[in-house]
Amino acid sequence: MSAVLKSASWWLLPSLLLMQGCGESEKTYTVRFSPQVREQALACGTSYTDIGTSRGVIDLVDFRAYVRDVTLVRANGERHPLALDQDGTWQRDNLALLDFVDGTGECVAGNPGVRAEVVGTAPEHDDYTALEFKLGLPPERNHLNGPIEPAPLNAPQMWWSWQGGFKFVKLDVRSRTNELFYFHLGAAGCTGSVAEGYTCGADNQVTVLLNGFNPDTNQVVLDIAGLYSGVDVERVPDGVTDSMPGCMSGANDPECPLFFEHFGLTASTSGGPQTLPATFFRVR
């Protein structure tokens, strides 16, 4: 409910500004995301060492994510959601797709188009000191995956037909022992129908708040070395206690809690917002 109200409130924002006339001027802000392995840029076609508990070697295969409600926060706490550019490709309404794979190297599912930023307007202020955003789609929008939806919801890599929704974050890498080592974050354990609505065992809603963020000078680091810090990317599942290398948000997957802690989530419950460790998300 609050999410609905919130999105409604920022729809009103442009008209309120028009009514105010020349109160404050709007500026285009670009919130940049930087996929990294520690201090090194993460890209297709490069191997990265010293990953996870086995200090394994990985190659990137696929990395995409949906973010929404990207909000700049002033020093006085005033919040200004970005009114996203409606570019017909990466951004629609309050939702944006990030795509970090360019189709080279092992990134076979990628295409040349990459997108590592969210662009939108907000009132111009020189004291934005924090950034807040949410991951993925809200529950009321996640399960409409019947007829095809317009970009950026038309990326087949992000369709999660099996769970009746979308993946929020998809990060697949290759290790020396696992052709694919998965991490898919999304609402899981879902039952229901389009007609009657859905309930999910884990909505897996994540709100990220980053302090010390100036949109003109800072970037959001997504450090996969941090994300993998507790898992063994070379562990081959035994098929008895674990059927899958990595985690697809399953309730009985032993690797999921090790991923979820970096999002403030627990694997078995619908975890609410928690303080996030600066392992995967941090400011640069």
Partner: peptide, 20 residues
């Protein structure tokens, strides 16, 4: 055992597009 695949249209998406 999937309770959300309530139509053959939705089911078809699984073999066509599933990656894992």
């Amino acid at each position: 055992a999937n309770p959300v695949l309530e139509t053959l249209e939705k089911q078809a998406l699984v073999p066509l597009f599933n990656e894992h």
